[in-house]
Design a protein around this nucleic acid. Sequence first.
DNA 1: CGTATGACCATGC
DNA 2: GGCATGGCCATAC
Length: 125
Amino acid sequence: MLKLRIYEVVRAVPSGMVSTYGDVAMIVGGGCDARIVGYALNAIPKTADDPVPWQRIINAQGGISTKGLLQRKLLEDEGIVFEADGRLSLPLFRWSGPTPEWAADHGFTVLPSVQADAGEQLGLF
DNA sequence: CGTATGACCATGC
DNA sequence: GGCATGGCCATAC
């Protein structure tokens, strides 16, 4: 089930950081797509023993795709700062992806493109 | 098994 | 900046 793998990846996103639907899809791999991530997050079981930080997944424009303001509030509580236009700085808050350790431990592959991309941005700052 | 639907994305106007 | 298309592919019915 891709949903479960997606949940695993989302759980790996640290507090105070965000990731995009597309990034999660790339990390999950194996015929995953940004829309699948959205679908999976929408279908998250709301059980307390299975928490998924769904609020840390945003769209590629750095904005919130959900309807209400709950997601934004949760992110702000974690230290995410929003710009005036309601979006956030992806270079600052975008999660660079799981560690190779984590990926190997959970059976994921780390995409070199994501790592190199994040490395440039982090190094820039 | 065919169709419809998405918390998406890139591109083009 | 917004709006329209096409592509994407797992679920649901």
